[in-house]
Nucleic acid binder design. Structure first.
Length: 110
DNA sequence: CACCTGACATAAT
DNA sequence: AATTATGCCAGGT
């Protein structure tokens, strides 16, 4: 479920961009994908579920562009998603009716 | 085996 | 209706 594969260049790039997101802020897959120079946001999700050092990599700070949670640990539904929401709430991110309240982090500010 | 483009579904414009 | 944008899939390279 969580093989200890060494982080690849692609993942590292994603993690670095993810590190640019301060606490209490959120990003979308497409936004992150563009930062790493990828045309598919789905590749980002793949990178997350591949080798996400869960607490080390703030993959929970990656939401959909619609404001929905998206997926977590390879699941798009389940208690893991609820945990993700709770984790976001813990960081100060508020939700309403399953939607993110506020805006995404601007990489240009980084 | 790791990585990415593509196909497909859904929502907004 | 058509086009555009997003996506934690699936498959091909």
């Amino acid at each position: 479920m969580n093989p200890d594969r060494p982080p690849t260049a692609f993942e590292e790039k994603v993690y670095e961009a993810l590190s640019s997101v301060p606490r209490g802020r959120v990003t979308s897959y497409a936004l992150l994908a563009r930062q790493v120079g990828c045309g598919s946001a789905q590749a980002i999700g793949q990178a997350m579920k591949r080798n996400p050092r869960a607490p080390e990599v703030p993959c929970h700070r990656v939401l959909r562009a619609d404001g929905t949670l998206g997926g977590y640990s390879g699941q798009v539904e389940g208690e893991q998603l609820e945990k993700k929401r709770a984790l976001l709430e813990s960081e100060g991110v508020r939700f309403e009716d399953g939607r993110l309240v506020g805006k995404f982090w601007d990489f240009s500010t980084s």
